[in-house]
């Protein structure tokens, strides 16, 4: 569906993307996970054709570079910024973008999208009056107006409350179920683990590894840890068999409490970069 081959992009002396190669398969949700400034948004901009790479190749649907208008009409982008016109209503915004894409029966399509993002009751309200979560959902709807095959969502939950975040994540799952291929960038490892079929770990412009969450954890997550509380003191025990270890500790008696820490994408990132994802 989308192939990036050895992409590099520099801004003056700053190397923002350093040799990223990846292949996004049709129908999957592919996560680009990395801290702010890792090069995720630059990679997305190159993938959409908005930025020309300093070197490397991008191919969309085997049609060629998305810098060509005919190729990029197959992709939809919900950028990290709210790219809507605040002076227009929700419906006017979508109709405008639909018109640019030459969407037939655009009115019906726009109404359908407004229902999908649960903004049909606010269709005639100006975007300026919307909450952050509502703007995010409309931002997503604007990317879908021409029914693209590939959807690129750049930090789609940035700055929204937990309730709106859950609605957006649910929306992503619905779109994937409809057959859309989705590239999802985030610095929230929980989001990546929840919705992505495969995840690419990005840092300092490098793609560190790609795989399913399970594969990445197996490769880089390390062992589980059993934390045992005894006489007010916590003891951390690294183990490959956390269930067996818990059983052994309980059998030995005198245990005030016990909990298990499973490795996750945060552990993977820590192992790969030597620092936390949120640093």
């Amino acid at each position: 569906m989308l192939v990036l081959r050895d992409i590099r992009k520099s801004f003056g002396t700053i190397l923002a993307v350093d040799g990223i190669t990846l292949e996004v398969r049709a129908g999957e949700i592919f996560g680009l996970l990395g801290p702010n400034g890792a090069g995720k948004s630059t990679t997305i901009s190159i993938a959409t054709g908005l930025l020309a790479p300093s070197s490397g190749e991008v191919d969309l649907l085997s049609l060629g570079s998305p810098s060509q208008p005919t190729v990029r009409r197959h992709l939809g982008l919900a950028p990290q910024e709210i790219t809507l016109y605040e002076g227009l209503s929700a419906r006017e915004n979508l109709l405008f973008f639909a018109s640019l894409y030459g969407v037939p029966q655009s009115g019906a399509r726009v109404d359908e999208l407004l229902r999908l993002v649960e903004l049909d009751t606010r269709a005639k309200s100006r975007v300026a009056s919307f909450s952050g979560g509502m703007k995010r959902r409309l931002n997503l709807a604007a990317a879908l107006v021409h029914d693209p095959q590939l959807l690129l969502l750049d930090e789609p939950t940035a700055g929204v409350d937990p309730q709106s975040r859950n609605r957006i994540l649910e929306l992503v799952r619905v779109l994937a179920a409809q057959g859309k291929t989705i590239v999802y960038t985030t610095h929230y490892m929980e989001e990546a683990a929840k919705v992505c079929h495969r995840v690419g770990i990005v840092d300092h412009g490098h793609m560190l590894d790609v795989g399913t969450t399970r594969e990445l954890i197996e490769r880089h997550g390390g062992t589980s840890a059993v934390i045992v509380l005894r006489d007010g003191v916590e003891t951390r025990i690294e183990t490959m068999d956390p269930v067996g270890e818990v059983a052994r500790q309980l059998a030995s008696g005198g245990v005030g409490g016990v909990r298990v820490e499973q490795p996750d994408l945060e552990s993977v990132f820590l192992k790969l970069t030597g620092r936390s994802l949120r640093e």
């Binding site: 901009s45 908005l50 990029r72 992709l75 982008l77 910024e81 790219t83 016109y85 640019l100």
Partner: peptide, 14 residues
């Protein structure tokens, strides 16, 4: 600055 131009540039127009 706000990014709407990018959305316009993504549309299949020159």
């Amino acid at each position: 600055v706000r990014g709407t131009l990018d959305r316009l540039r993504l549309a299949p127009i020159t």
